[in-house]
């Protein structure tokens, strides 16, 4: 059983992803904003973080940067966002995002990307 942290403020999207990923036997924790996410990350370990870019309090970029630079976490990060501006996306990769999925998204695609990212991580740690 792998655990995933989902950072998302849209309730509908939250619920949908939760159900999709539960079906694949992942354990899901949900943070509604960047601050809550930081608390979760300090308390427990995750195998994957899925985050939106536009969040209240602290945006997704800030969260990613803090995870990499302050908490020194190497957990894979998947960004799920409606933003398609190329500059924003490349900037995300620069600061440590591993994969980017555009909203609206295809649930099976999300499931397969999540699977791949987690497998990669497992492989790397062995």
């Amino acid at each position: 059983m792998y655990s995933i942290l989902l950072v998302e403020d849209d309730e509908f999207v939250c619920k949908a992803i939760e159900i999709i990923l539960r079906k694949q036997d992942y354990i899901i924790s949900i943070a509604k904003n960047g601050q809550d996410a930081m608390q979760y990350l300090q308390q427990s370990k995750f195998d994957l973080v899925i985050t939106d870019l536009m969040l209240p309090y602290a945006n997704g970029m800030e969260l990613v940067s803090k995870m990499r630079n302050e908490l020194h976490l190497d957990v894979p990060i998947l960004v799920l966002s409606a933003v398609t501006h190329e500059k924003t996306i490349t900037e995300g990769f620069d600061i440590g995002v591993d994969d980017y999925l555009k909203k609206p998204f295809n649930p099976s695609e999300l499931a397969s990307r999540v699977k791949r990212l987690i497998q990669q991580k497992v492989k790397n740690t062995i």
């Binding site: 509908f12 999207v13 949908a16 909203k103 609206p104 998204f105 295809n106 649930p107 099976s108 695609e109």
Partner: peptide, 11 residues
Amino acid sequence: LEYRNNFTGDI
């Protein structure tokens, strides 16, 4: 409509 706006693929 909300579901259609949030998902792509077969849904």
